[in-house]
Amino acid sequence: MVQNQNMHSNGLDRRDVVRALMSDRGGLLAVTGLGSPTWDVAAAGDDDRNFYLWGAMGGAAMMGLGLALAQPDRSVCVITGDGEMLMGIGALATIGARRPVNLSVVVLDNGHYGETGMQRSHTGLGTDLCAVARACGLDWVTEATDMVGVETVRRRLHGREGCGFARIAIATGEYERILPERDGAAIKTRFRTALGL
């Protein structure tokens, strides 16, 4: 396994973070932003209740909102990266205007576009996503910089204490790509089947 090559910041190991977030997941539904977050969630263990995005950059949070509104009795989390969130940053305003209690958006933030050569992203150049989420009126906004904080986020994914946003500071670094199913229709069908649809 090629792991942690070129690790050069002091953030958390993204695979450890996502494995922790997905543990004891109960009925949690997950939408994953394209690129590394999709590989991270797949690496934590394939599950029919994961909706892996391989494209649709900027759409993960909105897909999560649609899902949360369709499944109000289940907890929905979006796990995405800083670049993907930035492309659809207006979604935070849209989510803030509606705030379903069963929706959480988690951004794995390394301040870089990891899939394209580690160019610095806006969060590495000054944008504070927590401040954006707070300004958009989400019910809770939190930041995790250690695994204790990650465990707090994990509990909140299930807490239904309001619509939330978490930024988790992760390290840059190359990981083995763990590739889940890539046929979007197959992902959709097995997801809906898992929900009894």
């Binding site: 909706f51 900027g58 909105m62 897909m63 649609g66 899902l67 369709a70």
Partner: peptide, 15 residues
């Protein structure tokens, strides 16, 4: 485009 993603998420959840 937010609405496109929202609609797909809604359908994934049966709405």
């Amino acid at each position: 485009e937010e609405g496109v993603a929202l609609a797909c998420g809604a359908w994934a959840g049966g709405r």
